[in-house]
Nucleic acid binder design. Structure first.
Length: 649
RNA sequence: GCCGAGGUAGCUCAGUGGUAGAGCAGCUGAUUCGUAAUCAGCAGGUCGUCGGUUCAAGUCCGAUUCUCGGCUCCA
């Protein structure tokens, strides 16, 4: 029997072999490190017997797949056993792996909290120290159900009962113990191979993710092959925590929230500058040669609009509306008004307000209108999940032939904007879902147009089949921030349904009536959320063009006040945002504060600078090492700052 | 909306039924200083809100609200 290894070499065995046999034949070191084996592309336990010619790969924790096996074992064998032993009445549900770790859902008799984690962790370490071998056995459906019924594990029984087309189930026994688990596997051959881990948090989670079901307790953990990598990961988490936009937003005086307006951010003077700069930069990019026209549209509409658009049937739960519980209110024809959750219906009304010619297409309407969505209470958080926000929204009314070139332009626009923030991004193409409107022929053309546009821009993309909206396919973008996290921001969605619902028409070159296609698109996504991403991306140290305070002039002593005032005035005259710090404190103290406020340019003025009309620069960390002179003249300095204060798009 | 954890000075937090605290920030005064914290004094609170238990509640109980971690939702 022949076993092919990843390097192409072939090893012959006389009869059936296990993964462990193969690993051992290659070397004792590998046997020790081996955690599982991939046989013809399928991960299996080392103990599984291979009976036919196969190509295999021995997995160790160095492989992502091997690491996954280890995490899985930590969840299913170690964490599960520890909770069963520490909390005898607990019932195990499922324990899969996730990015960087694992979790296990457990039903406890009494709630547990983060404070209980160290004890569980301690028990887990003891369990690992036992280095018990794990043995796989296949049980028939009946035997498996009987086993878990007897062990009072209703969730395991439920899983088995719901699994169709399978007669045998994989049951893992931990030798020398009473512990048994139903699991897809594979698992480590013995627990001694478990690497470094840490339990991180507890949270609630519904059984099978359905809110009608019982709420279980989910215990999260993170795990890596060795202690060093775990520590690195924990450090990365700490770094992310330090950058948390809610913390920085408060520290830097950018935003606030109030109990009286849950889910609705206040932008304080400094935050408002960020907001304004972003909003204006986008608006300027789109208007004029960008080919867009901006509109401003109402907040509050008669429910008739939402009935036409379909929101009343599909989105009413997320809408703020009033009038329906106040019969005398007579607020409108239908007696019900709703705050807009999206701009699209408004733009349909704008398009439909006059006779349109094919010569007007593509008609591009942009709108940074305020939107309200009644998000669930528990879903609110910082600037990323809000009830009131603005999108850099636009709707393009196009003919079908124009889709491809419009989308091509949009993709270039996305690139322009993200590269201005030094952000990489990834595109995802979502195609027709099962429940969809429109013919297959229509979807074929629409999907092809999007794909062609992506290819024309040389953009690699991930295909997400079936993930499109029922009204059309879409391209979504994930941006990657400075510490490697991904955020979904931009979206480009084709819509064949909405213009039809509003009965929109334009006159074609042949003097006939046709319905336009609508492209919904946003690049930042929501301004609020994008600001949150930028705060974390830059760790609050914004590039000069959007920094709320671009320059702080620091006086060394009273003697240089007049020079400080003059520097400030000359910079302000050039439209820069400048503050002068004349407090009677030492220069070291003022510098420290300016650093904490993440001001890009700190200009120190003392008697020397006064004499030769210069400033002495102290640069924010990210501006150092760029050949910026330390003691420029005021004119030179002005030029330097102006250069970096230009909007990058 | 559901499960869990929280809410004490502007901020970060301590305070296990018996006189509400610290550091930073603030204010006042002194210091006029050259690249990440000058010194001293003062002031600052309905302990999220409402109700209950108790001789006595920041502390115990109930409700409510907001925040946080997840789940769910995201036409």
């Amino acid at each position: 029997m022949q076993i092919t290894l990843p390097d192409g070499s072939i090893r012959a065995f006389d009869g059936p072999v296990t993964g462990a046999d193969i690993a051992g034949s290659i070397g004792p070191g590998l046997l020790k490190a081996a955690v599982a084996i991939e046989v013809n592309g399928t991960e299996q336990d080392l103990s599984v017997v291979i009976t036919a010619d196969s190509s295999v790969k021995i997995l160790t924790v160095r492989d992502e797949a091997g690491l996954d096996v280890m995490r899985h074992t930590l969840a299913a064998q170690v964490l599960a056993r520890a909770t069963r032993e520490l909390y005898p009445g607990s019932k195990l549900a499922i324990g899969p792996t996730i990015k960087n770790g694992f979790y296990y859902d457990v039903e406890f008799d009494a709630p547990i909290s983060t404070e209980d984690l160290p004890a569980i962790e301690k028990r887990m370490k003891d369990i690992i120290a036992e280095k018990n071998p794990i043995t796989l056995r296949m049980l028939s459906r009946e035997d498996a159900i009987a086993l878990f019924t007897e062990r009072n594990e209703p969730y395991k029984v439920d899983i088995i009962e719901r699994t169709e087309g399978q007669d045998e189930f994989q049951i893992y026994f931990q030798d020398n113990t009473d512990f048994v688990d139903l699991c897809r596997g594979p698992h480590l051959a013995n627990l001694g191979q478990a690497g470094a881990f840490k339990l991180t948090k507890v949270a609630g989670a519904y059984w099978r993710g359905d809110s009608k079901n019982k709420m279980l307790t989910r215990i999260y953990g993170t795990a890596f092959g060795d202690r060093k990598t775990l520590k690195k990961h924990l450090n990365a988490l700490a770094e992310a925590e330090k950058r948390d936009h809610r913390v920085l937003g408060k520290q830097l005086g950018l935003i606030m929230f109030h109990d009286y307006a849950p889910g609705a951010p206040f932008f304080l003077p400094k935050g408002e500058i960020l907001y304004h700069e972003l909003s204006e930069a986008m608006r300027t990019l789109l208007l004029g040669k960008g080919g867009y026209q901006a509109v401003r549209t109402p907040q509050l509409f008669d429910a008739k609009l939402w009935k036409t658009s379909g929101h009343w049937d599909h989105y009413a739960d997320n809408m703020f509306s009033f009038g329906d519980d106040e019969p005398q209110a007579e607020v409108s024809d239908s007696g019900i008004m709703g705050l807009k959750p999206m701009n699209c219906p408004c733009h349909m009304l704008v398009f439909g307000s006059q006779k349109r010619s094919y010569r007007e297409l593509p008609l591009r309407i942009c709108d940074q209108g305020v939107l309200h969505r009644n998000e669930l209470r528990g879903a609110l958080g910082g600037l990323t999940r809000v009830r009131q926000f603005c999108q850099d929204d636009a709707h393009l009314f196009v003919t079908e032939e124009q889709i491809e070139s419009e989308v091509t332009d949009l993709l270039a626009l996305v690139g322009t904007v993200y590269s201005a923030f030094d952000m990489e991004f990834k595109a995802k193409l979502s195609t027709r879902p099962e429940k969809k409107l429109g013919s297959d022929d229509l979807w074929d053309r629409a999907e092809a147009a999007l794909q062609n546009a992506l290819e024309a821009n040389n953009l690699p993309f991930e295909l997400k089949e079936g993930d499109g909206a029922f009204y059309g396919p879409k391209i979504d973008f994930d941006v990657v921030d400075a510490i490697g996290r991904e955020w979904q921001c931009a979206t480009i969605q084709l819509d064949y349904q909405l213009p039809a619902r509003f009965d929109l028409k334009y006159v074609t070159a042949d003097n006939e009536l046709a319905t336009p296609v609508v492209i919904h698109r946003a690049i930042f996504g929501s301004l609020e959320r994008f600001i949150a991403i930028l705060i974390e991306h830059y760790a609050g140290a914004f590039p000069t063009w959007m920094a709320p305070e671009q320059v702080r002039v620091l006086t060394v002593s009273e003697k240089s006040f007049s020079h400080g005032e003059s520097v400030k005035q000359r910079l302000e005259a050039a439209g820069l945002r400048v503050h002068l710090d004349t407090r009677a404190d030492k220069i070291g103290f003022k510098i420290r504060e300016a650093h904490k406020d993440k001001i890009p340019w700190m200009a120190i003025v003392g008697e020397q600078e006064m004499e030769n009309d210069s400033v002495a620069l102290r640069l924010r960390t990210d501006l150092r090492g760029k050949g910026i002179p330390e003691k420029p003249s005021v004119d030179q300095f002005l030029e330097l700052v102006q250069e970096t204060a230009k909007r990058p798009f």
